[in-house]
Design a binder for these strands. Structure first.
Lengths: 174, 174
DNA sequence: AGCGCTTTGTAGCACTCGCTACAAGCGTCG
DNA sequence: CGACGCTTGTAGCGAGTGCTACAAAGCGCT
């Protein structure tokens, strides 16, 4: 048993139950150990969560690449719509649940969450840049515009107002 | 002492400490009572939270109207930028902290949070409709586009990537 | 005054939380 | 073999959780 062995089942548990109320004993049970051992391997809960966040960010990046490989979108709007649709698929729901826990943690000034969130956004931003149309006049600005609309639409979908976000997606120019 | 007397100090406490880890005893202390009395007046914690969410939604609507009265924006983009700037002011930070707790709660299938979030989004949507330029060709669609970008930009600001969201705001057409 | 109702205080329940003290098992190496 | 260090189990601590049992105030009513 090591961190590397422990992280996958721990991440699976978090994806199913959310990050906010993941406590040591249930986590340990999910990974087939005891809270005692989690603390032995990670030091304390904060370090565990930090390791978990990093691992989950990697999982998210992999999942994105698997779900939507190399091809470029025909337009900014199409790129945004594609990401929106992909992340709306059931297999992405656990990621979003964790994501909103992370965002909430950021607003409560949790440094680890803040770092993780920034990293995840950077990964997603790069990913969008690489999937923008070939001839986009300003891929950096384009990716930012696309990201903003995607995230807004995802949030609105999460709170039960998908129509609002989808109208926002449709209004994206380019 | 009644619900109406209790709610303001309770809401103040939640705005300062977040909704996620607000427990009965600290809440009661903030309101000058005991956990025993909170349960007496509200029945149980879920009902307390539901009442609190409703009260906070009202506070948010009032705060919006106070911060940005009746005038209309010259463009959709300006309208979005104004809301973004207003909600970036320090006095709105507590609302956003609570807001992300609510969104996270929605992703965890908490019905009370879901209802509150939907209501708040509807209020904000109506507010945006009323502040769009006079001659907007399609205020409903416009407000939705504006909302999507605002929320995306707010989220990106909350996780430490304000530049991304602001580029998104700048790319809003109209 | 005495009754009944609403409001309040004290104390406690059973539980979970993160974390730790202590010791037993374990394989490795001298 | 024995001693050592890495890994693990058991048990528990002190604090906090939502909630409840019980009783005592305060109040208006007849």
């Amino acid at each position: 048993m090591s961190r590397e062995t422990l992280l996958p089942p721990l991440a699976a548990y978090v994806m199913q139950h959310g990050l906010a109320d993941a406590s040591l004993r249930p986590l340990a049970k999910a990974a087939g150990t005891s809270d005692r051992m989690l603390l032995y391997h990670f030091g304390n809960k904060d370090a565990l969560v930090a390791a978990l966040l990093e691992y989950l960010a990697g999982m998210f990046a992999d999942a994105l690449d698997t779900a939507f490989p190399l091809q470029r979108a025909p337009s900014r709007r199409a790129c945004a719509k594609t990401v929106y649709d992909i992340t709306g698929r059931p297999e992405f729901a656990p990621f979003l649940r964790v994501w909103w826990d992370i965002v909430a943690g950021c607003s409560n000034n949790n440094a680890a969450y803040f770092d993780a969130a920034g990293g995840i956004m950077d990964v997603l931003l790069d990913w969008v840049v690489d999937h923008l149309p070939e001839g986009d006049p300003d891929p950096q600005a384009g990716a930012r515009a696309v990201m903003t609309v995607i995230e807004g639409a995802q949030m609105l979908r999460s709170v039960g107002r998908p129509d609002v976000g989808e109208a926002g997606l449709a209004a994206l120019e380019g």
